[in-house]
Amino acid sequence: MDQLLQQLINGLAWGAIYALIALGYTMVYGVLRLINFAHGDVYMVGAMMAYYLAHWLGFAVAPSTIGFVIVLTSSMLICGALGALIELVAYRPLRNRPRMSMLITAIGVSMLLEFGGQRVFGPDPKFFPQLIESRSLFKAGAVVLTNIDLLVICVSLFLMVVLRFIVLRTKIGLAVRAVSFSFETSSLMGINVNTVISVTFVIGSALAAAAGAMVGLRNPKIEPLMGVLPGVKAFVAAVLGGIGNFPGAVVGGLVMGVTETLVAAYFSSTYRDAVAFVILIVVLLVRPAGLFGKVTVEKV
C-alpha cells in the first residue's frame, strides 16, 4: 500500500510534466493540424536554458526559491521566442503546401535541435544545479512527499489554469479558437492569423520549457537527447486524450505518467518506455478519437 501511494506521487509528478508538453502538441495541432515533432526538443532547450541561466545568474551556488522562479520564467520566455522563430522560419513558408511537407520539416527541425544541441551544449550529460533543496514535507510510513514533487505538481496546475483562462477568457484565446476552426473565415473577420499562430507557438513552447526546467529539479541529469522520449510520450498522451482537446491533454499526460511509474514499480523498469506505445496502439484500436475526442460521423 505504501509503495502504491509513493508510486502514485511519482507518477503524478511525471504526469504533470507530460501534460505540460502534451498541451503544446495539442495547441499547435489545433491551429495548424501539425504534429510538431520538434516540441520535445524545445523541452530539452528549456532545461538547458534553465541550466545555463542558473549558472550565469549565480543561483547554482546560492540556491533560492526566488532564483528558481527567475530561472523558470526566463527559460519560458527564451523558449517562447524559440517557438515563434521555428514557426516563422520552418513552418510558415510551407503553410499552403501539402501537410506532409510541414510534417517532414518538423522532423528536420527536431533533428536540428537534437544534434545542433549536441554541438552547442556538448553531448555529455550535465548536472542540473539544485536550485531548491529537496526535503520531505510529509511522511507517513514509507510514503514521502517531497517539496520538489509538490512544486512540480503545483506549478503545472497553475500554468494549466492560466492557459485555460487565456483560451476561454481573452481576446487572443477567442482568436485562437476561431483560427483553429478556419483560417480563411477568421481572416475575413479581421483576425491576423499569422499573429495568432505565433502566439500559439509561444505559449506551447513556454509550457514545454517550464516542464524542462522542473524536470531538472527532479532528475538532474540533462543532455541534448533528453527530449526525444518525453516528446514521444507526451505526443501519445495528447493522442490518448484526443488531440486538439485541452483537458484531454492534461488527463492523457497524467494517465501516461501514472501508468508508466506503476509498470516500472510492479513489473519491470525495462518495460517502462514500451508502455507509451502499448497505450498508443490500444487507444488507436479502441477509441481512435481519444478519450475526449469527438467521434465524427460523416453525413451522407
Binding site: 476552426f181 478556419s182 479581421g190 483576425i191
Partner: peptide, 20 residues
C-alpha cells in the same frame, strides 16, 4: 461558415475582435 462550437454570442464577439 460560422464557428459551430462557439456560442452565438462568441461568434459575434469574434467579429468584434479587433475592437477589443
Amino acid at each position: 461558415r460560422l464557428f459551430p462550437n462557439m456560442s452565438v454570442l462568441d461568434n459575434v464577439v469574434v467579429g468584434a475582435n479587433q475592437h477589443i
